[in-house]
């Protein structure tokens, strides 16, 4: 079942901006990300240290708290998965 959250587009904009700012990716490159764009393992900039920075920056910008046991490979697999995860945290 696909759930569309109200305000998901704002969350998506924030996730895009965080990836651009933290990983130092160009604006056009990040603008071209779709739900299926692979992240962890596919973006050389996204190493394990950068994952920690991306999640912490998302916490600050969205006003959410991410527990360590919520962090897994799945949420970072694609851009869409990361947006869905962030939206679930931000919009409840």
């Amino acid at each position: 079942m696909l759930v569309i959250f109200e305000g998901t587009s704002q969350v998506e904009t924030t996730v895009r901006a965080v990836l651009a700012d933290i990983l130092g990716l160009g604006a056009e490159r990040v603008a071209a990300f779709t739900d299926d764009t692979p992240l962890f393992g596919a973006l050389p900039e996204l190493d394990s240290m950068a994952v920690a920075s991306v999640l912490t920056e998302l916490e600050d910008r969205l006003g959410i708290l991410i527990e360590d046991d919520e962090i897994d490979g799945e949420m970072l697999e694609t851009f869409g998965a990361l947006v869905q995860f962030a939206a679930r945290k931000a919009l409840v």
Partner: peptide, 20 residues
């Protein structure tokens, strides 16, 4: 990009969280 209270805000990326 930081939503918390501040006396002033300026555009820029958080260099302290960048690996490069």
């Amino acid at each position: 990009s930081d939503p918390r209270p501040a006396d002033a805000r300026y555009p820029g990326a958080p260099l302290w969280r960048r690996s490069e």
